[in-house]
């Protein structure tokens, strides 16, 4: 019986390790593309844009708290009849503790309803000082 030379076992083991490492890291990424309007493209008629506010597990549409199941229908109603792209801009304001999975779920609903997501970070949100 002819046995493989024992000096080659190191090479064989190393090659096997490398083979599995390479195989494990070639899985392609999948996801969702999102184009956010640049800040200079934002319309001047911001008061007429639809506004969505996100909390840790809450969602508000133009100031009204909704259940996530009702949000999609309400958003469709709000976007109904708006044909110009600037009218379909939906401003998403998130509380600092809003988790990413919640944000993804809601922005997916907005995009599937035909809305154009734009974000407004906390720093940009107007701070109203009582008595100021």
């Amino acid at each position: 019986m002819v046995e493989p030379p024992s000096s080659a076992t190191g090479d064989i083991a190393f090659n096997l390790i490398v083979f599995f490492l390479v195989c494990a890291s070639v899985q392609p990424d999948s996801g969702r593309q999102q184009t956010l309007p640049r800040s200079e493209q934002e319309t001047e008629e911001q008061s007429e844009n639809i506004e969505v506010q996100l909390g840790r597990n809450t969602v508000m549409l133009n100031g009204n708290i909704l259940r996530q199941e009702d949000f999609k229908a309400a958003l469709h109603r709000a976007l109904n009849g708006k044909t110009r792209s600037e009218d379909r801009v939906v401003i998403v304001k998130s509380k600092a503790d809003t988790p990413y999975h919640h944000w993804v779920t809601v922005t997916e609903m907005i995009e599937s309803a035909g809305g154009i997501v734009t974000i407004q970070t906390e720093e940009e949100q107007q701070v109203v000082v009582p008595g100021g």
Binding site: D29, S94, K95, A96, T98, P99, Y100, H101, W103, E122
Partner: peptide
Amino acid sequence: LFKVHREAQALYFE
């Protein structure tokens, strides 16, 4: 490619 941990908060990902 934007890869964010599902529980990351808006304070970090925005």
